[in-house]
């Protein structure tokens, strides 16, 4: 939903970066102590602003709605319960749900979760594979018109994502794929210019000799790509896959256009509907926060496993 992330090729040259950091670290002059105290205080304040809302989601999700309304500022969950999670996941009886301030209506949460997983997986696997194939053709194969076609892909980087949404909606409608997960997936399933561009840079850095050795051993082009190039570029491919998965998982605008019913509704859209559905009697905040937490959880887990890779990948790819 926003412009393409800038991600710098990092995995192939971790040494250079460490050296850089090391030397700059040694030469950096020390802050005076009072300045350092203030600096740390500001940093801690920023971290609090960053992290406290997440605590507030958890605290709210573990409360009952009547408790939240009678005790809006307590740090601990008022009337601690896991009822909101049970309610969202469909394990709570209607009476209990009403008692805790839920709407009593059932939420097809598992379906939305499944749709989100299916969508993000489909987009990630296809986009990364097809982009890698194209990147290979642009970096390692010799063919007529290569540079012109590559320039066309690069020009695609300049088109704001939001401009193609309306015409793509018309196209998906004409294809009869409205309200299907495939319809949501299609526009980003084949490639993004960024993914092609990103992987091409890495493929250019893989020594030619390795590929030629494989070719001398009788491997076909296809075999070389799958058995040599892809494994050697596994680090950037993993980074790209995570970023793609996150983007597909978190997208809201496009799925909102394409999906109308539970059959294709993904979590982000479901959360929006959940919020809009809340009756005047009061929003089911505990349920909403529990649902938000579950929706965000897979991204947190991904991040915990790959944090270093994701953090280090954010830099400049120098796209100008």
């Amino acid at each position: 939903m926003s412009t393409s992330p800038t991600t710098a090729p990092d995995a192939l040259e971790p040494k250079t970066e460490n050296e850089l950091q090391g030397s700059s670290h040694r030469r950096r002059h020390k802050l005076p102590t009072p300045g350092k105290v203030v600096a740390w205080a500001v940093m801690i304040l920023i971290l609090l602003i960053t992290l406290l809302p997440f605590y507030w989601i958890l605290r709210t999700a573990l409360s009952t709605n009547p408790g939240l309304l009678s005790d809006p500022a307590s740090l601990n969950p008022p009337e601690f319960t896991t009822g909101a999670f049970e309610r969202v996941l469909g394990f709570q009886s209607t009476e209990d749900a009403l008692a805790e301030g839920g709407s009593g209506a059932t939420l097809n949460f598992w379906r939305y979760l499944l749709n989100s997983v299916f969508l993000a997986t489909l987009v990630t696997v296809c986009q990364v594979l097809f982009s890698a194939m194209a990147a290979y053709a642009f970096s390692r194969l010799r063919w007529k018109g290569r540079d012109q076609v590559f320039a066309l892909f690069l020009a695609g980087l300049m088109v704001p994502a939001v401009f193609t949404l309306l015409p793509n909606f018309v196209l998906i409608k004409q294809l009869g794929l409205i309200d299907t997960v495939l319809g949501i997936a299609l526009p980003t399933m084949f490639m993004t210019p960024f993914a092609v561009f990103f992987l091409r840079q890495f493929f250019l850095g893989i020594p030619m000799e390795i590929e030629e050795a494989a070719r001398l051993d009788g491997a076909s082009r296809m075999g070389t790509f799958f058995k040599v190039i892809l494994p050697m570029a596994s680090a950037p491919i993993a980074t790209l896959s995570i970023l793609t998965y996150m983007a597909a998982w978190n997208d809201y605008f496009w799925p909102l256009m394409v999906s109308y019913t539970d059959s294709s509704r993904v979590l982000t859209v479901a959360l929006g509907v959940f919020r809009a559905q809340s009756p005047q009697s009061g929003t089911d905040w505990a349920g909403l926060m529990a649902a938000s937490l579950i929706a965000a959880l897979p991204m947190f887990l991904l991040f915990m496993v790959f944090a270093r890779r994701i953090v280090n990948s954010i830099g400049f790819s120098g796209i100008k």
Binding site: L47, T50, P53, L271, A295, A307, V311
Partner: peptide, 22 residues
Amino acid sequence: LRGLVLTPYLVSNVVAALVWVW
């Protein structure tokens, strides 16, 4: 630290909006 400052970016716009509305 760099990971921690990045955490809000991991959640969708929708979740970020909802928590602040609350």
